[in-house]
């Protein structure tokens, strides 16, 4: 009796292994065989979340499986990125990431709590990019880098940023260094409060996304000074605002949001997801949403994504 049971068990185990191996084989080709979950590690209602939910609605159409958009919060996205390491290669879970997690977090205070590195993931596609803008209290008459520089010579200047170790803070430090001026950083809890501080005159300057400063710029309370990009921005709100790169400086970067898979995921899957997203991002209502949110779709090669992370890391290290 006992023997029989053992035999059956062994047989079952063997069948299990065989079928598991078989699954691994077919996994890649039949992927996705179940719904794909895309985790946004940032707040519900934020830009990344909205994009995630919007793009997810096309999952069935382009991937043949639904995309489930979810959020997992904590530590500015780092909790979700840590937990994501529990996934194996070729899993049906994907996650968003940005330079904040890979370029900034490992190089600021608290880095010893970060258990992941960029190499634990494979970038699939950069979903969108957003250009940061420097705005000034309108009453100061600062509207380009020259006027900023001359104003700063005679006045002590404070700049409101969203968090002392956020992207905005490093852009501010890099700019101050490039211009040879002194900017004192004041950290606010959120870009909206930082902008409000500049609007009230608590600080002279603020850095934020274009969409966040839009209201105050349209109302003439804040004046755009420069964008943190290599070229001029010209749209209905920001008219001919020069990029930092055009002045010959290098201390700038865009905020880019990537879709990532776990390291070791098959190239075929990467390509499949990448193509799916490229298709989704062409959809009319997605394009419209991007316009509304003032974000851009500028597909990068996977090497360029790596280069972006490296470039931001350089800037962060130089200004820590």
């Amino acid at each position: 009796m006992k023997k029989a049971v053992v035999m059956v068990l062994i047989a079952l185990c063997m069948m299990g292994t065989v079928s598991a191996a078989g699954q691994a084989e077919s996994n890649v080709d039949s992927w996705p065989s179940e719904p794909v979950t895309v985790v946004c590690p940032w707040a519900v209602g934020g830009v990344a979340d909205v994009v995630n939910r919007k793009t997810a609605t096309y999952g069935m159409e382009v991937l043949g499986q639904p995309i489930l958009a979810t959020n997992e919060l904590g530590a500015g996205g780092n909790v979700a990125l840590t937990n994501f390491l529990n996934n194996e290669a070729n899993s049906h879970n994907l996650i968003f990431g940005a330079e904040g997690a890979f370029s900034i977090a490992p190089n600021v205070d608290g880095a010893d709590a970060i258990l992941f590195t960029y190499d634990d993931y494979i970038p699939i596609i950069n979903l969108y990019s957003a250009v940061f803008v420097l705005t000034a209290d309108s009453s100061l008459g600062i509207d380009d880098l020259e006027s900023l520089q001359s104003y700063a010579k005679n006045n002590r200047m404070k700049i409101a940023v969203n968090g002392i170790a956020g992207s905005e803070a490093f852009l501010a430090k890099a700019l101050a260094k490039d211009l040879g001026i002194n900017l004192e950083l004041v950290s606010y809890n959120g870009a909206n409060l930082a902008l409000d501080a500049a609007a009230k005159g608590e600080t002279a300057l603020a850095i934020s996304h274009q969409s966040q400063a839009r209201g105050s710029v349209e109302a003439g309370i804040l004046t755009p000074v420069v964008v943190f990009d290599d070229k001029t921005v010209n749209n209905e709100v920001y008219k001919n605002i020069k990029g930092v790169g055009e002045y010959g400086y290098t201390g700038f970067f865009r905020n880019r949001c990537f879709v990532l898979a776990r390291k070791g995921t098959d190239q075929k899957i990467i390509d499949k997801v990448r193509e799916a997203y490229m298709e989704i991002l062409q959809k009319d209502d997605v394009v419209e949403l991007f316009n509304t949110l003032m974000i851009e779709y500028d597909p990068l090669s996977l090497e360029a994504i790596d280069a972006h992370i490296d470039a931001v890391t350089e800037i962060v290290k130089a200004n820590s």
Binding site: G76, T82, D109, G110, D112, I164
Partner: peptide, 15 residues
């Protein structure tokens, strides 16, 4: 200042 306080190297206590 962005410095960590009493997080005991635990990422979950970060925020």
């Amino acid at each position: 200042t962005g410095s960590t306080r009493f997080i005991f190297k635990n990422i979950n206590l970060y925020s």
